[in-house]
C-alpha cells in the first residue's frame, strides 16, 4: 500500500487520495493570443516521464485539499509533498 504524507493531516493511505494529474502543466496566460498547438499541449498532451514527477493529488476522503506530490514513477517512492499553492 502506498502512503502519502498530507501536509494538513499527516501520513495517510493512498486509498484516501484521488490522483489529479500532472502538476507541472501551466495554463496559457489569460487575455493573450493562444495557438492551437499551445492549447492542445495544455489540454491533451502529457509527458510520461520515467523517474521523479510532480503530480497533483486530492485528499478526497480526508481534508479535501489539493496537494503536490513528488513521486518516482518507477519505484513509487514519494520524496516530498506540499500544499498545492506552493512550489516543490
Amino acid at each position: 500500500m502506498l502512503y502519502i504524507f498530507c501536509p494538513h493531516c499527516g501520513l495517510r493511505s493512498q486509498n484516501e487520495f484521488s490522483y489529479g494529474g500532472d502538476a507541472t502543466v501551466k495554463r496559457p496566460a489569460l487575455n493573450k493570443e493562444v495557438s492551437d498547438e499551445q492549447w492542445n499541449n495544455f489540454v491533451y498532451n502529457r509527458k510520461s516521464p520515467r523517474g521523479k514527477h510532480v503530480e497533483l493529488w486530492q485528499h478526497i476522503s480526508g481534508c479535501r485539499q489539493w496537494i503536490k506530490v513528488q513521486r518516482d514513477t518507477v519505484t513509487h517512492e514519494i520524496f516530498k509533498t506540499v500544499e498545492a499553492n506552493k512550489e516543490i
Binding site: 493511505s13 476522503s61 479535501r64
Partner: peptide
C-alpha cells in the same frame, strides 16, 4: 479503515474511509 488508530485519542477526530465509504 487504513488509519493508524494508535494515534486516535480522546477528543480527536479524523476523516477517512471504511470499506470504501468516506
Amino acid at each position: 479503515c487504513p488509519y493508524n488508530f494508535n494515534e486516535l485519542n480522546e477528543s480527536k477526530c479524523v476523516n477517512s474511509i471504511f470499506n470504501g465509504i468516506t
